[in-house]
Design a protein around this nucleic acid. Structure first.
Lengths: 111, 111
DNA sequence: CATTTATTCACCCTTATGGTTGAATACATA
DNA sequence: TATGTATTCAACCATAAGGGTGAATAAATG
């Protein structure tokens, strides 16, 4: 369930074009589909599809005003993902310190 | 090129099975291919392929002792990825505070 | 109302992905 | 040396991904 979400976010973020879209949105705020597409050497349709993928992952949201669709980055999924990697690092450090502790105890028995 | 690396890491991490493999390795230290495969309801071969993907992304390394291959998680790619998400958050906050500042200046002109 | 503009939808194509099975390789061991 | 064990390689299959084009839809605008 949450795993599903994470997978979708990471898959969405795993494409260079989509990461560039995200970065653009984060630094410039909401942008229209056409404005985004202008940055890429590919068809408007392809960019539109990339946006859809990001949207399905929750990484961006869409606000439609008339015929214009404004796309904005969302912060929450970024936090979720960052925290997954962070937790993994924590577990790592936990294991290492436990290991170290065990080695010290071993030394205490000086056998 | 760094983008290439990131893409490979994120794609590798975008699969639930592979994230579980990573987690197992992080919490239990180096494990053999068979030992890892025992945790999953899929063929040994499939797990072996997942490991290969993780390896190509630099997320794990392999130490071969005789016929046994010991797989271990690597910390660096995790840090790299976490920092990409972190940077994105920073840019976000930078833009927001700039925006806030602009609004305050607007108010100063009290027109 | 006709036209232009903004965007998506529906297909098509090629390549990648995630899974399978069976054979090959590399190493221990009886 | 024959056999079993650990692992990968190779081929296959179904489905997804990432790209393209052309048509459809929605909304401004002359």
């Amino acid at each position: 369930m949450d795993e599903e979400f994470l997978s979708r976010i990471l898959k969405a973020a795993g494409d260079t074009t989509r990461r560039r879209i995200l970065t653009l949105l984060v630094q410039e705020g909401a942008l229209r589909v056409t404005a985004l597409a202008a940055h890429f050497d590919m068809s408007l349709n392809s960019v539109s599809k990339h946006i859809k993928v990001l949207e399905e992952a929750g990484l961006v949201t869409r606000r439609t005003l008339g015929r214009e669709h404004f796309i904005a980055a969302e912060l929450e999924p970024l936090k979720l993902t960052e925290s997954w990697f962070g937790q993994l690092k924590s577990i790592w450090e936990l294991r290492l310190s436990a290991l170290e502790h065990a080695l010290v105890s071993e030394g205490d028995r000086h056998d």
